[in-house]
Write a protein that binds this DNA or RNA. Structure first.
Lengths: 256, 256
DNA sequence: ATGTTTGTAATTCTCTCAGTGACAATAGGG
DNA sequence: CCCTATTGTCACTGAGAGAATTACAAACAT
């Protein structure tokens, strides 16, 4: 995946546009028009390497999406909306659609979304692990113990902790340096913090979460074979729920 | 398109998930798991009508996206993240990706994004027309004259006007009732407003925009053949730019 | 009038994904 | 311990979408 849009803007834009549902031709046509400002089918075809006869279909697709305006003349001329307007357009559409998805899924969701006592579940990927932790923060009722490698402590997570604290959940946060402790004390004054607590200091890096003594999650950072410099090394986590869950039992024993 | 997620949540969720890039099987599997909470391949297969043997691939896809966790046992058990977490996950991803797209397109964009003097451009669709108007608001330097059917005056547009007003652009807003005028005066005190100005009152509904005397846009609402109750009747607009542009000349003559 | 450019349409090819079946590994029950 | 049902993996087929090419008529310029 091309994550650095300044390095190869053309292919970065192409990738995103296609993943937003445009056909390959439509994406290439739009990128061509965006760099040209405006032009005819011929112009577009030359810089985009889309067959000229297919430019018209691509333009239809883009016009329907509101990304391109058409000048009815001969030859027809096409005009791409600005970068800012384009990303605004997408953002609006996607915002609307995540809203639809949210309510739809909430309609479907069963009342009890609880999980079995036994068993250890797996989650992979830094983003997914973070999301899962935030979800667990939201379910906490009494106590959160969270020890983390400092660079994994994103704003999302701090927000989640902060909300839990406001509900009256006691927070114990470990692994954070004195400097960051300072910053967090502003947002979550109730939290107790430590720099390198107990057994955790031994672990290379990763996270440990204990909630209400009955739900837990541990993660480790792994160097993958295809580790690219842009892509942060990925994370693997396991979690379990329930008083008798083996993972919960073990971790409760280690971190009293 | 299924726009009302409370009416048929299942198909609404399916549609959105697929448009976010999931395969049909993955989408159906996730919806099944979301209503089940958790279950085995067999369970999923029964409620989703995905062939049991394909559930595993679908789960892989979902696990990679961070939407499903896996219990390594026999039989394997699968667990869907909550509706809120799911929509959060998508929103984050899409936010990130629109950001990439924005910077990539800005890199590509030519310095002069100006359009020819002659020619009349077309835009279709309420959303696209609104976006175009906001874009034009952003380019205004001295004066905006905007007459609109009241129900088309969304918050987006008011924000755009407000920003322009802060830049020192004079605003003349027409077609708004006394009640709405009140509300707007709070946000844009500089604007002058009128209820049904000059020739505009004759037109059924639509919008008229004049910017700095050299750019203009007119729109009309059209009842389409396939007009569904959910889908608002669509809008068609034309616009032109330049002192000598024929549309600009005509409209400047009508609205002095 | 004539040659070129432009827009539309029909056609072929390719690749992804839905859908199906074979088969080995595993679990559970007698 | 053996037998049967279930589970997970793989390989295959077929249908459909989209990429790419060609043919052709209308519009335009000279």
């Amino acid at each position: 995946m091309n994550d650095d849009p300044t390095e190869d803007p053309r292919s970065a834009a192409l990738e995103q546009l296609e993943r937003f549902g445009l056909s390959g031709y439509a994406a290439r046509t739009f990128v061509a028009l965006a760099s040209l400002g405006s032009g005819t089918a011929r112009d577009v075809s030359q810089v985009s390497e889309v067959p000229r006869t297919q430019v018209y279909d691509a333009i239809d697709e883009l016009h329907d999406r509101g990304l391109v305006d058409i000048l009815q003349s001969s030859p027809k001329e096409f005009w791409a909306i600005s970068a800012d307007t384009a990303s605004r357009t997408f953002k609006n559409e996607l915002h609307r659609r995540t809203g639809i998805l949210r309510t739809a899924l909430n309609e479907l969701e069963p009342v009890e979304h609880r999980v079995e006592q036994r068993g250890i579940w797996t989650v992979d990927g830094q983003r997914a692990v973070t999301e899962r932790i935030i979800e667990f923060f939201g379910n906490a009722e009494e106590e959160i113990v969270y020890k983390t490698s400092e660079d994994l402590l994103t704003d999302d997570l701090i927000d989640g902790l902060s909300e839990a604290a406001e509900r009256g959940v006691s927070i114990e946060l470990g692994g954070v340096s004195a400097a960051v402790q300072e910053r967090i004390r502003d947002e979550i004054p109730e939290a107790t913090m430590s720099e390198s607590p107990s057994a955790w200091s031994d672990m290379s890096a990763g996270r440990l979460l204990l909630i209400d003594g009955r739900k837990t999650l541990v993660s480790a950072l792994v160097d993958e074979s295809d580790a690219s410099p842009s892509n942060p090394r990925s994370e693997t986590a396991i979690w379990g729920e329930g008083e008798t869950n083996s993972l919960v039992v073990v971790l409760n024993a280690i971190f009293p």
